[in-house]
């Protein structure tokens, strides 16, 4: 029974497709996708980079934050076609190839900066982006809160994440 049913079920939507090419975590990728596909869905479901999470699809939670041409941005508020030709970096690119944690990730672990871990990739990408910007980091309580504003976390109450940012600055010699 399942077999006959399966044959009757469509496999693809009727959406027109466009070719999209971009660099993701250093690798060139090309796909044909619907014009309306969000970059978050493209990364997660076309490229299977499921570390980028989706918590709201309206720009508030920050779970979907990735680096677009080096700057933190919402992948849920970007169409895959819009990112044509972009350089994208996701959480999967942050640790070393052998799995060694990046200092920001290491600091989160040491400071218990995550609980369920759902907001974590977006938080880490946002922090990594800021750490890569030239200039002095504002590591006051206020400064770090401002850095983190734009990423919701429902588990930690943020204070351990604030500690983690400070610890990461120490580990990176930016303190």
């Amino acid at each position: 029974m399942a077999r006959t049913m399966k044959a009757a079920i469509p496999d693809r939507s009727a959406d027109a497709e466009v070719d999209v090419s971009m660099t993701v975590n250093g690798e060139a990728v090309s796909r044909s996708v619907s014009v309306r596909m969000l970059l978050s869905d493209f990364l997660r479901h076309e490229l299977r980079l499921t570390g980028t999470h989706v918590g709201c699809e309206h720009g508030v939670c920050g779970c979907c934050t990735v680096l677009l041409n080096g700057r933190a941005g919402r992948s849920c508020l970007t169409l895959a076609v819009q990112a044509n030709g972009y350089d994208i970096r996701t959480i999967e690119s942050v640790a070393s190839a052998d799995g060694t944690l990046h200092p920001v990730q290491q600091a989160f672990k040491e400071c218990h900066g995550l609980q369920c871990g759902y907001c974590t990739p977006g938080m880490v990408m946002n922090i990594v982006a800021r750490f890569e910007e030239p200039g002095k980091l504002d590591l006051t309580d206020e400064g770090i809160r401002d850095l983190l504003s734009g990423n919701l976390c429902r588990c930690t109450g943020y204070l351990n994440i604030i500690a983690a940012v400070r610890r990461a600055a120490e580990l990176l010699g930016r303190a």
Partner: peptide, 9 residues
């Protein structure tokens, strides 16, 4: 105005 990741775009 919003937050940095929004202002970036």
């Amino acid at each position: 105005v919003a937050h940095v990741p929004i202002r970036n775009r």
